[in-house]
Amino acid sequence: MGIEMKEVVFIVVALLTVVPCLIVAFSRNILYSAFSLFFTLLGTSGLYFFLDAEFLAIAQVVVYIGGVTVLLLFAILLTKNIQEIKETNALSMKRAYFAGASSFILLASLIFLAVKEWKFFEAGPGTDYPFLTLNQLGELMLNKYLLPFEAASILLLVVLIGSLVIAKRAVK
């Protein structure tokens, strides 16, 4: 049994996701970080395609690549003295080590548990997710998941009001 085509593609997509992640974290130039983030998000979208979640993959491209990354680049463009960001990063090295160590412990314990119990690698009962077309997805959203869908709309309205409250001029 050699490595099949699907696995090769998966490894490429996974590398496309993880390697730019490292650049995002370690690059001294924030512009490089922003562009690497673009590739990470693209890779994540690829992973979603792998999981047969096409809608999610497309939404990822539209929202994160089309929206968030571009917004981030604009923010960098409009911020003065953006290069001095290095100094603020250096201030919190201790915390960075602490955060790194604790996430490592968390990851290690998760992997340990997964290997020991051998549970994460086999699908639980009822987890064989059905293949969904966009039509079915839309129907689900306005049927079974109507309540979360509407709650999310109220949430977004609150976000809109909140951003106006924060951005508006002081009352005289």
Binding site: Y145, L147, P148, A151, A152, I154, L155, V158, V159, I161, G162, V165, I166, A170
Partner: peptide
């Protein structure tokens, strides 16, 4: 009665509170 609704409820409550906490902008 569902984690999704529960999460959205928490976010709706919290987002409103974040803004209320900072409503005295000056």
């Amino acid at each position: 009665a569902d984690f999704m609704v529960l999460y959205l409820g928490i976010e709706l409550m919290s987002l409103s509170l974040y803004i209320l906490a900072g409503i005295m902008r000056e």
